[in-house]
Design a binder for these strands. Structure first.
Length: 254
DNA sequence: ATGCCTTGGTACCCAAGA
């Protein structure tokens, strides 16, 4: 089973890119983030042969699931704060497999309330994944975690030293997820530095390969045992009017 | 580096992104 995560930075601006990707990559499930609007082009996605479901809000955030077969939604928000109305989480069942698609908060500027929200959100995510582990529910979680796990996951660690994506407390929150017994799928078969999923639009970051690795797939133990491959597909980042993120693709022997 | 782009919402600039 081929599952993909991709922050598209507006589904309205990137619909043709999504359709082009679906046609060439033929994933079973494409989980996208940053829809940036209340509308979702379900009919256009259906025309390419895919089902879709989404959780959206006006202007910001938003996550969607595009799949060959219909999904069963388990949760349309991250539990733990009923006052939180940001569209950043969808948990669902696809062909008997539990999947989660997240758009974690950015957290800048630091310090401040946005960073506090980021850490609180990560703590709530830990609580939810801990619950799934306790219930022995096997799952894969993918998305834009907005976390640079290690120095080798960015072009210049010194430049990111005080950033919300790389602060010690941020990386600790990520390691706490890993320590639930989860596997960073990309790092199973790729260990070298300088492999990124995001390049800023500014200052020629893409041309200079000045990027960061912030889009991830974490797998529970039994799913990790079924991992075939996990790769970053840099091609869509080269397309005209590209998203600043590129897809990460995981293949599981399901 | 308060900069550099890109998007959406609102109104011709600003917030947010990372």
């Amino acid at each position: 089973m081929k599952i993909v995560s991709w922050n598209v930075n507006s589904i309205k601006a990137r619909l043709e890119h999504v359709q082009k990707f679906l046609a060439s990559a033929q994933p079973d499930v494409l989980m996208i983030q940053e829809l940036k609007g209340l509308d979702f082009p379900e009919a256009d996605i259906k025309a390419t042969g895919y089902e879709s479901a989404f959780v959206g809000q006006k202007a910001y955030n938003g996550v969607a699931v595009i799949s060959k077969h219909p999904i069963k939604i388990i949760l349309d928000h991250l539990p733990g704060d009923e006052a939180d109305e940001q569209a950043r989480y969808i948990e669902f069942d696809y062909q008997g497999l539990r999947l989660i698609n997240i758009y974690a908060p950015n957290g800048n500027p630091t310090p401040g309330e946005k960073y506090d929200y980021k850490l609180g959100w990560m703590e709530r995510l830990h609580a939810r994944l801990s619950e799934l582990r306790a219930q022995n529910i096997q799952f894969a979680i993918g998305g834009d975690f907005n976390v640079i796990p290690e120095g080798k996951d960015c072009y210049d660690p010194k430049a990111w030293k005080d950033d919300a994506l790389f602060l010690p407390a941020t990386r600790q929150a990520f390691r706490r997820l890993i320590n639930l017994g989860l596997t960073d799928a990309f790092r199973v078969h790729h260990t070298r530095a300088g492999q990124y999923t995001f390049w800023d639009y500014q200052a020629g970051a893409w041309q200079r390969d000045n990027g960061i690795r912030i889009d991830h797939f974490l797998l529970s133990p039994s799913i990790a045992d079924k991992l075939v491959s996990c790769v970053i597909d840099k091609e869509p980042r080269e397309w005209d009017k590209a998203s600043d993120h590129t897809p990460i693709i995981v293949e599981i022997n399901w």
